[in-house]
Design a binder for these strands. Structure first.
Lengths: 125, 125, 125, 125
DNA sequence: GTGGTCTAGACCACA
DNA sequence: GTGGTCTAGACCACA
């Protein structure tokens, strides 16, 4: 996995785990891979993984069961809210960025559409 | 100005200045406020401003004239490329984020449109 | 190490590190001494070292691995280009200097040869 | 005239004036252009010119005649020594630079010859 | 331990 | 006044 040099890795790992949950790779109630396993998979130090998991526990997304490991919460409400929040954050961030560049809402939709079209052309070639 | 403490301040200042240029608040060839003035305005240390400006100089966006100050380049090509790059980066980042959440390109456009509509409703109320 | 006080120290350190790579004292892929160690060795402030290394990173000559240190890139192409550039710069600078003194290219070669001969005599005595 | 960003301008002006003397554009005993004129010609601040001239006075290369301006010394010995010194400095600097890159004296001569050949090809095309 | 960022403050070159 | 460099030193993220 590639990390953005400008953002703390633990934070990017938090986002990564949330995405795994949202996309269903990690199901509600299922066990999260062991800290050491994640460290290997993501080629990241164990401490860094720990920090990400601790924060996700505080957010209620993960639940630690002593001696057994971390599990995705079974509280569907929490997960739904989390997904909502993540998607909204992405849209909101785009909106703000483009808006601060003087781009109007209408132009944003056009720009995104064009971006996607170009991208698909390039990929399909 | 508020800074996101997840990202280096000098980097956010780089982006801020690019935005000022893109939106036309800073015109091609015009003088950038003095580093010490910027430091006061943004309540940041002079060195931090320096770092942002030095990198923008390396990128060719700004030009330093010894003892006189920093100026936006008059090379329109560089500025156009910079604008392109900034807008593309925002779109690309959105695309990646949403895509990694399992959202299809079509859904992205709908989601953005919906987001904008809701936002306008909220704002206009 | 002695510094020419006409040229920024960070810049001389950049050149020094490039030389270490070119002469093979620092091999492709090998680790560069820690910034704090370099600061001690060269009796220079850590920040000054940082600046030199940051620029070498931007140039692609060094690669920083978070929390582990700086490494010479393994991209031989980059290193070859860097060496080329450094040698050419030295020759070009000599050429310009002598040329502006009204010395012809032929005379330059003679002058350099004579200079070297005298130097060797002096050294061998 | 173009200045190297890394070296103090007053120092580059000293070198420029020495070159003008060496190449005969400024003859022994002749008057140096007025400070303000030089400032215009070189598009540089008067203070900067002053500093260069002051140091050249200290070196004995220039002589100030009160109320009349600066003149190149008529002491041929001083001028000859200066020329020697400038040329030697250029050769010595090249030698050191290339030597520190692990290039042997023999290779230096070859490298310079090659450099000159390539340069002439490029220029004559 | 290793690098990255930031601050406070000094001093210099240039206009 | 304007930017450039450097130092001393703090604090953080990561291994």
């Amino acid at each position: 996995m590639e990390f953005d040099d400008k953002v703390p890795i633990y934070y990017q790992i938090k986002q990564y785990i949330c995405r795994e949950i949202i996309t269903g790779h990690l199901q509600a109630g299922s066990q999260v891979p062991a800290v050491r396993q994640l460290a290997l998979d993501l080629t990241v130090n164990v401490n860094t993984i720990q920090r990400a998991l601790t924060e996700l526990n505080q957010d209620g997304v993960l639940v630690t069961k002593r001696g057994r490991g971390n599990f995705v919460t079974e509280d569907i409400q929490v997960l739904t809210a989390m997904k909502q929040q993540v998607v909204q954050a992405a849209l909101s961030s785009t909106y703000d960025q483009l808006s601060r560049l003087g781009i109007t809402p209408q132009e944003m939709v056009t720009a995104l559409t064009t971006y996607i079209e170009r991208r698909e052309e390039t990929t399909h070639e």
